[in-house]
């Protein structure tokens, strides 16, 4: 799994879309890729914040990571509806970050 691109947020969106397209089958590799990209995105935002640049809502990003992890490692059924919601939040965050 890699998040080697310049836009890990967008890569996470792509991976999440791939996972959602597999519904109702759990797609380990797409979710793993989404997790890796989300964390790289988080690292970028943290770095931006430490450089004094405005940083989008980190609590929201951590919530997204939590939901994606819940889909990746579910306790019961995969929370697909919440993953769709998280995908929407992520799209907003990526837009903010690009903005």
């Amino acid at each position: 799994m890699t998040a080697g691109g310049d836009h890990p947020g967008r890569e996470a969106l792509t991976a999440l879309d791939a996972a959602l397209a597999q519904r109702p089958h759990k797609d380990h590799s797409s979710l793993s890729q989404a997790t890796t990209c989300l964390c790289a995105f988080r690292d970028n935002l943290i770095a931006a914040g430490r450089d004094g640049r405005p940083s989008p809502d980190m609590m929201r990003l951590n919530a997204i990571i939590s939901v994606v992890l819940a889909g990746h490692f579910p306790l019961g059924a995969v929370p697909w509806d919440e993953l769709v919601l998280a995908r929407g939040w992520l799209a907003d965050l990526v837009a903010d970050a690009d903005g």
Partner: peptide
């Protein structure tokens, strides 16, 4: 352990 490798 998997999450550690993913950077979570």
């Amino acid at each position: 352990t998997l999450a550690m490798a993913s950077g979570v």
